[in-house]
Write a protein that binds this DNA or RNA. Structure first.
Lengths: 246, 246
DNA sequence: GGATGTGAAGTCGTTCACAGCT
DNA sequence: AGCTGTGAACGACTTCACATCC
């Protein structure tokens, strides 16, 4: 095990290994080899071993990895051995969906505050769907609430035009990690972390592949056999500068 | 201009260039250099030129690129010079949000059909928010409807347990491109294209960065100066095998 | 024997540097 | 003079192959 820069791609794969291991453990597997895990995740076996090697030695030569143990090790590496408390800003369609989206909470992620510039407008409809009243707060109170509730992650689901302002308020409130769903380019100060989730970039990708496939491949007319999924590298991130949406 | 394999990353950047160019055109810029565009997008100027070089020559030496023209060229390359008709399966929280999410439709993407295994259950609440009645169909009718309405892209927003079934029905109906939001590993036959949008993978990434930043950097205590955003490479895709969410 | 951990090789993508147009 | 287009250098990530250890 060396040290230094872990590729972003490695972290993404760890996230995947973790979920595959959950399945394998659920199926009762006690020990898994890098080859098995790799097959389940659709990656190369050496890749699995290399990824893990960034963080230590987790396996037993000649045997493999203890599934449960490895799963926990990976979760610890990813920082999932704690509860991450999140605040969401912008309770429109997407915001309220995330607020209600149960698959989200599976892994130690909890939304503990919701902000919108017009609380009364949204409080009713979200509460109704949730079945219990939900508290929607004005962003002016962000700093206070963030301190009070130990929020560490902010989610932006405002319209694009409001996204930078929301990010500024988060930064001001001391939130270090921001997940942005608004189709806007946001800047944050050094030391803060911004991740974008842009749907339409992925759609654009799909559109490109469909368009170019049509041109090139006259092959594969009506094949119906199940086969291993092809590549689908996709969800990405952005850097500085102009507006961009996903 | 050579030919051959265009990197996935290039396509993602084209998507970004396109949106930056929209802004620049809106601001009245007639001509932009690769350096300007690169600055706006937070990439290297040579990268911009290389990316474009995969598809032809679009600039004028000593001058730059005509902004509007380049924007249209890029959109054409991405396949955005047509309307993409989409069907969404699974009208839960996320599905109905996407159905109502206006920022989505900006670029030639239109949802023309919505499916759910229990239409009556969801039809009411979506219609209410939309202000007009919406038609929710049973997935059994997918093939018929897809043909009728020329659907080319499918969006999966079912629970994870139903995602593969939804994909199978899309494939059966002849939908070639699938965008999957369900936290599940899906397989599609050769010739079909699957892109995943996994929120929680991005969150895991954020969690990792926040955790490791805490360990390493005791620096950058209370910096408040605006600075160019740091890296935020992120939204990704998956391949074969096990369950994964994002 | 068998699977891990890892240097070395290979592949892919990015950046440099400059020739070539305008 | 200025900026594009592009071969060549560089760097990063992936895969191979094997020494190492159980």
């Amino acid at each position: 095990m060396k040290f230094l820069k872990v590729p972003e791609a490695t972290i993404r794969r760890l996230s995947r290994y973790s979920r595959c291991l959950e399945n394998l453990v659920r199926k009762g597997e006690k020990v898994v080899s890098s080859a098995q895990l790799a097959a389940h995740c659709g990656v190369n076996a050496a890749q699995v071993r290399k990824d893990l090697a960034y963080f230590g030695e987790f396996g037993i030569r000649g045997v493999g990895y203890y599934a449960t143990e490895l799963m926990h090790d990976i979760k610890r590496i990813l920082g999932l051995n704690k509860e991450w408390r999140m605040a969401i800003v912008g309770i429109g369609n997407l915001g309220s969906a995330l607020l209600l989206y149960k698959d989200f909470l599976k892994q130690n992620y909890k939304i503990v505050a919701a902000f919108d510039i017009d609380p009364p407008k949204v409080i009713g409809r979200v509460s109704e769907k949730l079945g219990k009243p939900i508290e929607i707060l004005h962003p002016d109170r962000m700093e206070e609430i963030v301190k009070e509730r130990n929020v560490e992650v902010g989610i932006i689901t405002t319209p694009a035009s409001e996204a930078q302002k929301a990010a500024d308020q988060m930064v001001e409130a001391g939130i270090r990690g921001i997940l942005n769903f608004a189709p806007a380019q946001i800047n944050v100060p050094e030391g803060f972390i911004l991740k974008n989730v842009f749907f339409t970039t992925v759609l654009d990708n799909l559109a490109y592949l469909l368009s170019s496939a049509k041109e090139i491949k006259k092959t594969v007319p009506g094949q119906r056999n199940r086969s291993e999924t092809d590549a689908d590298e996709s969800l990405h991130g952005e850097r500085g500068g102009g507006l961009s949406s996903g």
